[in-house]
Each structure stands twice: as structure tokens, then as C-alpha cells.
Amino acid sequence: MKTDIILAGVGGQGILSIAAVIGHAALSKGLYIKQAEVHGMSQRGGDVQSHLRISDAPIASDLIPQGGADMILSVEPMEALRYLPYLSPNGWLITNTTPFININGYPEVDTLMAEIKKVKNHVAIDADTIAKDLRMPKSSNIVILGAASTHLSNIPYEDFELGIRELFGRKGEEIVSANLKALKAGREAKQQ
């Protein structure tokens, strides 16, 4: 059983935190993981992506083959589309709908949403608004993870909570519980 996830966003949007939470969760289940990240130049407001692979058997490549990803998990709608060639025919596209506009010629949101809806399995939620309603504007990444959690069936929900505790534990109980709320809100938003 393997799960290949492309995490996408813009540098600074927190996709590595999502990866770390899933990573902790997977490791605590005794699963193998490989997670290729982007460091350096492209982090500066550019597009960033991470290849996260989880499996119960040893993993060979650090990169996910094109057409092989079980999920694209994106904190930004245009970035979600950039990695479509990686999505497997039955894979899920799970994305935030709030655009991050730092370039000229950013497409109209309506045309973006139309492209997202063309993907057979897609979930699009407004994670930024959900995070703002929780008074945790920076936790939209964890909201998106919550929405994705129902599709990551080899990791029970409690293990995501555990992952959040591990990752944010040093920052105090307040931050932990706020992120746990964000995770739950994302999961519920998905189920609505």
C-alpha cells in the first residue's frame, strides 16, 4: 500500500509543515517515507512543491513518477494545476480556493475554478476564510491537510493529531490546540 502526494504552493505558505505533520504521522505508524523538498532560490515567492511518498514497503525514487500521484494537495489554486501531469487518473486534487497573487497575468479566479472542476476527483475549499474564522489566519495549510485527511486512509485521524502535537509542541499548547481546530475544521468542511 503506497500513497504518493504532491504538495504545492508558493514559497512561505507552509507546505513543509503539512509534509512534516504527515511525515510524523506516517513514521509513528512504522511506515516508510521519502519526502523531497525545495530549498534555496525558488523559495523566494516562487512556486514550490514537495514530493511525499508513504508506503508499507521500502520506497525507491525520491520523486513521484508523472501520472502516479494519488493526491495533489495545494494551498493555492493555480499551483494545484501546475502539477496536474503528476496526478494519477484516479487521484484526488485537493486545493485551497484563495489565490496568492504576486505576479502579473494571474488568471481570473473563475477560469481557474473551471479548470479545477474538470479534474474527476477534486475538493476545493476556502481554507483562508475557515482559518480566519478560527482567528488563525496562518493555519490555512493545516485546514487543507484536514480536508485531505479523509483520503489518506492508511493514516488514522488520531495520528494527524499526534503529528500536529509533535510539530507544534514546542510552540505551546495554545498553538497546538488552534492547529488541531484547523485540522478538524478542514476535515468537516470537506465532508459538508
Binding site: 514559497g11 523566494r44 515567492g45 516562487g46 512556486d47 504576486n102 505576479i103 497575468g105 488568471p107
Partner: peptide, 9 residues
């Protein structure tokens, strides 16, 4: 419609 998003200052 997907535009390049190069790194920037």
C-alpha cells in the same frame, strides 16, 4: 492559464 511564478525579491 497557469502562469510561471519565478522567485522574486
Amino acid at each position: 492559464i497557469v502562469q510561471p511564478r519565478p522567485p522574486q525579491l
